[in-house]
């Protein structure tokens, strides 16, 4: 079965991204497919590579990047939500005249259409948020 996942809260502030990560891992471990993980609202902040969590805590962004690499997951950050919150890839930084990008490996920035497309293509859409 194909799952589409929405993460709509930021890391550390809210448990949502941890719950989503656990769900995705369990889905993959039980033979299901995760067609896309879409990060919306403050969820886009999961995808910054500039966070430095304390070493004795879980490394949320690194966990997602590693999982994406291992399973070729499609981690999509909503462009509209990302622009509001200062999450950029190099392409967006160039286009907007900003001096840096901060997107982590394994994430990509794209439009809200990717959320709707995910809802159409996935068998089940599940949101982890507040």
């Amino acid at each position: 079965m194909k799952f589409g996942i929405v993460v709509s809260e930021g890391p550390y502030t809210h448990q949502a991204s941890d719950s989503a990560y656990n769900f995705v891992k369990a889905a993959l471990a039980t033979g299901h497919e995760v067609s896309r993980v879409f990060f919306y609202h403050d969820g886009v902040n999961v995808g910054t590579r500039l966070s430095i969590p304390p070493q004795d805590d879980r490394q949320i962004q690194e966990q997602w990047s590693a999982l994406a690499k291992e399973h070729e997951l499609d981690l999509v950050i909503c462009i509209a939500a990302a622009q509001r919150r200062g999450l950029l890839d190099q392409n967006e930084a160039d286009r907007q005249g900003k001096d840096a990008n901060n997107i982590a490996e394994g994430f990509r920035i794209s439009g809200l259409g990717q959320l709707i497309e995910m809802g159409i293509q996935a068998d089940r859409t599940i949101t982890f948020g507040d």
Partner: peptide
């Protein structure tokens, strides 16, 4: 339930509604 069972429940229902 554990996460594997959560996944199984999501798969066996017709839709998931997350009350946020």
């Amino acid at each position: 339930v554990n996460y594997e069972e959560f996944v199984g429940m999501a798969a066996s229902c017709d839709r998931v509604q997350n009350w946020l």
